[in-house]
Simulated scan of single mutants.
Amino acid sequence: MKGIYLTKYGRAEEAFEIREIEKPKPGPNEVLIKVECFGLNFADVIARRGLYPDAPKNPALLGYDVAGTVEAWGSDVHDFEIGDRVAALTRFGGYAEYAVTMQEGVAKIPENFDMDLSTALATQACTAFYCAEDCVTLHKGDNVLIHAAAGGVGTILVQIAKHRGCTVFGTASSGKQDYLKSLGVDYPIDYTKEDFSGRIKEILGGNKLDVVFDSIGGKTFKQSYKLLQPGGAMVNFGAASQLNGGKIAAIGMAINFGFYSPIQLLMSSKSLNAVNMLRIADYKPRVFKEVFTGVMEMVKTGVINPHIAQKFKADQIAEAHALLESRKSVGKVVVRW
């Protein structure tokens, strides 16, 4: 089978190599999937830049999101049949024609649901669901800020927040505001042209935000925290701002998050939540399975409806990475075999 290996850190056009490798065999608790397509996540870009400590050392087979059909399974797996259409979270290894993963990370795709769209479910939709349904409770009328609202996770966060009756503020770069409006974002904000903090203060007057979902980190996180009212919650699930420089810039980004005391949070009744779905999958597979089941229910009822930014062929992996890194994509970037 073929696999796309990260062989060199840096620019996308110099980073990857397609190699012939052996088909993996499922362990007792694993499912083998014949991959039809896989999705990119921003963590892939960070890994390609050499800034993601969780990524395997080069040559590395990246990839979290795959969609395809069940090929085989281990002795402890009983819920699947040959040919079942599934979406799955892979603990790396997704950039290949076949992938294995734990059975808790595999879910059957609803009938007639598009295979390409399914690549947005295991990582991005599960992240959005866990952030919005497990970390916090969204109430009707809540003022909610979603950074990078036109991205894969951001799109689904908007859909869940609107389903819960929230007023949504969404940030995105230029050219994406019409897309945000189509999702139902009440106040689209172009962060390249105006200060999101000042704009939200202007809109809310003396009021503040109830929940912020942040994947940018650094100064954006600190500014957003200041917009929270007592009882508000920050949910951070990324640090995309670290791509603005190398490892030294990443250190500066970490400092720019700010420093928070438990006493400070107690007195204001604010909460800080940080989410890494790989950690949930690794240490709480039962919880991950429950989240994935919840995602599929929202897919069936139409609450969650991912958007495809663009589709690429496997030998266009560099172009796919470049698009995602440019932050010009809207929705999920998909690669097909």
Results as ranks from 00 to 15, higher is better:
Lys247Leu: 11
Glu319Gln: 13
Asn207Gly: 09
Leu121Thr: 05
Pro53Val: 03
Asn276Gly: 09
Ala87Asn: 08
Leu145Cys: 01
Gly217Phe: 11
Phe288Gly: 04
Ser118Tyr: 05
Val295Ile: 10
Ile255Asn: 12
Asn143Met: 13
His139Ser: 11
Asp76Glu: 14
Glu325Trp: 03
Thr293Phe: 10
Lys193Asn: 06
Lys226Asp: 07
Phe92Met: 06
Ala161Gln: 04
Val45Glu: 03
Glu111Trp: 01
Asn29Lys: 15
Ala240Ser: 14
Phe288Ala: 04
Lys181Asp: 03
Val212Leu: 07
Leu6Gln: 08
Gly231Phe: 12
Arg11Gln: 02
Lys289Tyr: 13
Lys162His: 05
Pro306Tyr: 07
Gly231Glu: 11
Glu202Gln: 12
Phe92Trp: 12
Leu209Glu: 08
Phe237Ala: 03
Trp73Lys: 12
Gln159Phe: 01
Ile46Phe: 05
Leu61Asn: 08
Met102Pro: 02
Lys289Met: 08
Gly39Met: 06
Tyr52His: 03
Leu227Gln: 00
Asn236Cys: 11
Phe292Trp: 07
Lys332Phe: 10
Pro26His: 15
Asp210Lys: 08
Arg199Gly: 01
Leu323Gly: 04
Cys135Gly: 01
Lys34Tyr: 06
Gly170Lys: 02
Gln103Gly: 07
Pro53Gly: 06
Ala15Cys: 05
Ala60Thr: 14
Leu266Phe: 09
Leu61Met: 09
Val291Arg: 11
Gly170Phe: 03
Ile160His: 04
Thr123Leu: 13
Tyr225Val: 01
Glu81Gln: 15
Ile216Val: 15
Leu204Glu: 02
Gly94Ile: 14
Gly105Asn: 12
Leu32Cys: 06
Thr7Asn: 13
Val275His: 02
Ala309Pro: 02
